[in-house]
């Protein structure tokens, strides 16, 4: 289980998180929604200890993350897969080596046969051909980079998966593919997931519960149906804005199709 208890974080004068409390049950997928720059990624980074909160506590798997020693944190991180917004693949390594680095058990990491099999398995899980393993990140499209990023995150068989804007910068078709992948990994691997996004449609598709981060605070939490039914002006404003974006994207796609 992941718990955030009154987490606050500021960068100089900018208050990014102000007493944020959240709970993600085992096996659950929570989508954390909010406009760009509202602190969604910061929330995610406090969960795996990449950022230390100024106040409050973060508890993952029963461990108080801000109080962990370096070795304890490293051990906890081996149970948490993190999918970065732009993949964050290592430029100097090919896809196979990138995914292999995700195998966090050192004994297994040294086992060449296990690693080769695990890389193949992870590529299959993210719908990529085995030949992709020998490509360099620069040779991949944006959608493929994200999928390799997901493959690396699941290579160590994590208990938790944190997705940072998995569909941002992708066209609707590729965004759907990634959303489908998030759903599939939840069903096949049974992981507890937190998906940070500003894409309402995709988040409602993949999440069991949705939380809206608005002006450094959690403004709404609930099932997609409960959030949709909310009369909170901030929730309505955010949902309407996303709906407009969806319409614009749909029109643009339709125009491209008719043009071609």
């Amino acid at each position: 289980m992941i718990e955030l208890l009154g987490v606050s974080k500021r960068f100089l004068d900018n208050i990014v998180l102000d007493g944020v409390s959240l709970e993600v049950q085992d096996g659950e997928t929570l989508a954390l929604l909010g406009p760009s720059g509202v602190g969604k990624s910061v929330t995610l980074k406090t969960i795996n200890g990449l950022l230390r909160p100024d106040a409050g506590d973060v508890i993952v798997d029963g461990l108080h993350v801000p109080r962990l020693s370096r070795a304890e944190l490293s051990h906890l991180r081996s149970k948490i897969g993190y999918v970065f917004q732009y993949g964050a693949l290592f430029d100097s390594m090919n896809v196979r080596e990138n995914i292999r680095l995700g195998i966090t058990n050192e004994d297994l990491y040294e086992d060449e046969a296990y690693c080769a099999e695990r890389v193949r398995e992870c590529l299959r899980l993210v719908n990529l051909q085995p030949e992709v393993a020998e490509k360099m990140p620069a040779e991949l499209s944006g959608g493929m980079k994200k999928r390799v990023g997901i493959a690396r995150a699941i290579a160590g068989k994590p208990k938790y998966l944190l997705y940072d804007e998995p569909t941002s910068g992708l066209d609707p078709v590729n965004a759907d593919v990634i959303d489908g992948l998030v759903e599939r990994l939840r069903d096949e691997l049974g992981v507890t997931s937190v998906v940070v996004s500003h894409d309402v449609r995709g988040s409602f598709r993949v999440a069991d519960r949705v939380a809206l981060l608005w002006q450094a605070k959690i403004r709404a939490v609930g099932t997609p149906e409960e959030v949709l039914a909310s009369r909170d002006p901030a929730v309505l404003q955010f949902l309407e804005r996303d709906l407009e974006m969806s319409l614009i994207q749909a029109e643009s796609t339709a125009e491209q199709k008719s043009g071609s």
């Binding site: 490293s74 051990h75 991180r77 970065f84 964050a88 290592f90 680095l101 995700g102 966090t104 690396r152």
Partner: peptide, 17 residues
């Protein structure tokens, strides 16, 4: 470049130094 493209964060998130 590795810092601003989150590659260093990615290494840390994999429990590696």
């Amino acid at each position: 470049t590795m810092r601003v493209t989150e590659q260093i964060d990615a290494l840390e998130s994999l429990g590696r130094s």
